[in-house]
Write a protein that binds this DNA or RNA. Sequence first.
DNA 1: ACGTTGTTCAACCAAATGGTTGACAACACT
DNA 2: AGTGTTGTCAACCATTTGGTTGAACAACGT
Lengths: 124, 124
Amino acid sequence: MADQLSRVFAALADPTRRDMVARLAEADHTVNDLAAPYDVSLQAVSKHLKVLEDAGLVTRTREAQRRPVHLEAEVFDLMTKWIERYRRQAEERYSRLDAVLARMQDDDGDTAATTAQQQEGTAS
Amino acid sequence: MADQLSRVFAALADPTRRDMVARLAEADHTVNDLAAPYDVSLQAVSKHLKVLEDAGLVTRTREAQRRPVHLEAEVFDLMTKWIERYRRQAEERYSRLDAVLARMQDDDGDTAATTAQQQEGTAS
DNA sequence: ACGTTGTTCAACCAAATGGTTGACAACACT
DNA sequence: AGTGTTGTCAACCATTTGGTTGAACAACGT
């Protein structure tokens, strides 16, 4: 279908699914249990769960007739790794830029109007 | 349209958009610049940028004809906050469960077959 | 065997998504 | 003034998504 990271992000892009994850963080739940608060059919909830399962966010084991749903929190790491990597990169870049701007203030350069992105583009 | 958290997750659910964000973490880019590596029309890239902009992940300022795209890394916090909250909650639950199981081992309870989720459901 | 409970599968529908092409707006360069 | 560069807007198309209903399946209690 798509790479897992895409599936995880897509799965969490829906408020109902995020709410399910939130509740599953507290305790495992059956499908009926999960469906109770929402004003949609049981089948719709089952579909949402399939999306979460395909993303690797939950697993379902069998227990008599019930299908307890269990949150697999490790998948969160996939996202945080991705996010943190680029957040850090961006922040480092901004602080480098701050340094450049501070230097320009001191020097009173005549290239002060040049935009930040060009500075960055040519910076080492 | 939808809440920002949903928009941010949805925006990052697309590999092309994630790649754009990755490149924007390094340096600001113009639209043409951004579009170069991808095998899609410029208009498609423009649409992707609109999605990222609506999510608050990027801003576009005007500079002559060019429209430099700039990454707004603060929005990442929205996601990490959400993710970390439930990850922590889930992890705490698991360690509590570990404690319960350990206690059961000691006691050699006859309810050992009872599933974890039921233990959790009635715990605390 | 039979009904009940819990859950999924199948077919369908409306809206959103990601892509296309064509027109055009804004600016820069002669 | 005329041309090229950079980017967006509008209309269209195919696919995906989130929802519905109705039927089916699976595991129990009787």
